Simulated scan of single mutants.
Amino acid sequence: MRRTVSLLVSLLVLGAVMLGATVIGGPGPAGAHAALVGTDPEDGSTLSALPAEIAFEFNEPVGSSSEVAVTAPDGTPVEVVDVAAVDREVTASVGAATLRGDYVIAYRVVSADGHPVSGQLAVTVTEGAEPETTAAAPQAQESFVHRHREHLLWGALVAVVAVALIVAPLLRRRRP
């Protein structure tokens, strides 16, 4: 009995040390993903007209399957063509923007490690026609669980297997 308790305590201590090493030694949140370091136009800027080209600069190279979308103040999409990703920069040509107000510029790129990175910025255009409606459709934000559901499922599976491997030998010893 004493040996079983000692073994169980040793396994619990080993598990706690391994968990602590994983938490402390693991990468930080999104440590290997591309991060936006600059845009043209800048987020929150006020312009007389929407520029014909938009540029995004990231801290690492991004994949060629990049997407850019521009939403006008009335919620309608603005034409975006010629989206190109070269090394760390993504550029896109933007069609004519005829309304004044707040434009939302959204981007989605794939970082070098294969993970999608997305975000948005807002610019205000001061010249043009007054929009009929100014309420743009809100964009849904993905939750932490939704973004990392696959990792959480694998972690749960590993935890179940680890518990089974620890408990099975202990149960076998108790049988006469």
Results as ranks from 00 to 15, higher is better:
A30Q: 13
G31A: 15
A32I: 07
L36R: 12
V37T: 15
V37C: 06
V37W: 09
G38A: 11
G38T: 07
T39F: 07
T39R: 04
T39D: 07
D40N: 13
P41A: 09
E42R: 15
D43A: 02
D43W: 01
G44K: 05
G44N: 08
A49K: 15
A49P: 05
L50C: 00
P51Q: 12
I54L: 10
A55M: 07
E57L: 07
E57V: 09
N59S: 15
E60Q: 15
E60N: 11
V62H: 03
G63I: 03
S66I: 03
E67P: 02
V68N: 00
A69Y: 00
A69L: 04
V70N: 02
V70I: 06
T71E: 04
T71K: 05
A72I: 10
A72Y: 06
P73V: 12
P73N: 13
D74L: 06
D74H: 03
V78A: 03
V78T: 15
E79T: 15
E79W: 08
V83C: 12
V83D: 12
A84D: 08
A84L: 06
A84R: 07
A85R: 01
A85V: 00
V86H: 07
R88L: 09
R88I: 14
R88A: 14
R88C: 10
E89P: 04
T91V: 07
S93M: 11
G95R: 11
G95S: 12
G95D: 08
A96D: 14
A96L: 14
A97M: 10
A97S: 15
T98Q: 01
T98E: 10
L99Q: 14
L99V: 09
L99F: 05
R100D: 10
R100C: 10
R100I: 07
D102Q: 14
D102P: 08
Y103G: 00
Y103K: 01
V104E: 09
A106G: 00
A106I: 00
Y107M: 02
R108A: 13
V109D: 10
V110T: 15
V110M: 06
V110R: 06
S111M: 03
H115P: 04
H115E: 13
P116D: 10
V117N: 06
G119E: 04
